[in-house]
Structures are given as structure tokens and as C-alpha cells.
């Protein structure tokens, strides 16, 4: 329980709590991004460089932008709001507390937590790459295929619309 862990944990919790409580949807996304960044920093602190940096790249760089775009495409501009915080924060808090309780119960009831794990060797990016290319090459290929299919599907959907409007 070092000072840096405390700071990062506080940042993460504050970010995610603000994401639940704020009224403006874009503010929520930005606060959530802060939470993502805090989690990434926690990964980095644990020595998992690859996971931490991938977290920043995917969540901060891509998912946040995607969420922001989605909000701006769908959000209806309402009247100027008086309060910074959403009036639904109690409901949000209850849902979050319930999820937290279930997760905590699941973790606490598993036996793995209380066993002393043997110290892990330092996992380098090289090792992750080797594992992906040797042991887990089939799942990787399947995932690649799936993503390619999704990409082609997205292109097809976009092209169809163009034909209609012509």
C-alpha cells in the first residue's frame, strides 16, 4: 500500500464516481477516461507494461473518442442545467454499489485470493509476443478473422447506404 498506489486508486475511484454522478454526458465520458487512465497507471505500477499501455491506447485513445462521438450524434441539446450533478446519482450509486458487492463477494469467496501466489517472473513484452505466436496462435487468428469480418461488415453497411441515396 504505497503512496503512489493510494494516489492512483483515489484518481480511479474519483474518476469513475464522477462518471456516474455528473449531469453532462460529455463530462461523464471525460471523467470515465480519467478512470481508465488510472487503471492503466495501476497496471503499469504492477509491472504489466504491455497491458497498461494497451489500456491507454485502446480505452483512452479509442473508446473514449467513440463514446464522445456516440453522445454527440445522439444527444439532444437540452436547456441550460442548474446543477453540475445529475439528479439520478442515487440510482447510479445503488447500481454501482450492487455491482461492487457482487464482484467483491465473488472475489472474497474464491480461494485463490488467500493463497500466497509464487512470485511471478517478470513478464516482458517479448514473452507475451511469444505466447501469442506459439501457444495462443489459434485464438489470435480467430480473433483476427472476427475483427476483419466486423470491419468488412461495417464497410458493407456504409456502402449500402450510399447506393440508396444515389
Amino acid at each position: 500500500m504505497t503512496a503512489s498506489f493510494l494516489i492512483l486508486a483515489l484518481l480511479t475511484v474519483a474518476g469513475t464516481a464522477a462518471a456516474m454522478g455528473l449531469r453532462n454526458a460529455v463530462h461523464c465520458v471525460l471523467a470515465l477516461t480519467l478512470g481508465f487512465a488510472g487503471i492503466a497507471a495501476l497496471y503499469l505500477q504492477l509491472g504489466a507494461q504491455f497491458v497498461g499501455l494497451a489500456q491507454i491506447m485502446v480505452y483512452v485513445g479509442a473508446v473514449a473518442i467513440l463514446a464522445v462521438f456516440a453522445i454527440m450524434m445522439t444527444h439532444k441539446p437540452g436547456q441550460a442545467e442548474a446543477s453540475v450533478f445529475s439528479s439520478h446519482w442515487i440510482a447510479g450509486g445503488v447500481v454501482a454499489a450492487a455491482v461492487f458487492a457482487v464482484l467483491a463477494w465473488a472475489i472474497a469467496s474464491s480461494e485463490a485470493v488467500f493463497q500466497l501466489l509464487p512470485p511471478q517472473p517478470d513478464v516482458t513484452v517479448q514473452k507475451i509476443g511469444d505466447a501469442l505466436m506459439h501457444r495462443f496462435v489459434l485464438p489470435l487468428e480467430i480473433m483476427g478473422l472476427l475483427l476483419t469480418a466486423a470491419l468488412i461488415g461495417a464497410v458493407v453497411i456504409a456502402m449500402d447506404r450510399k447506393e440508396e441515396t444515389k
Binding site: 504491455f50 499501455l53 491507454i56 491506447m57 483512452v60 485513445g61 479509442a62
Partner: peptide, 11 residues
Amino acid sequence: LFFFAVGSVVE
């Protein structure tokens, strides 16, 4: 990877 991760924050 760090370089590109940080670069994506610019967006």
C-alpha cells in the same frame, strides 16, 4: 508502444 499510447491521448 508507450509512444503511440501517449500519442493517442492527443486526440
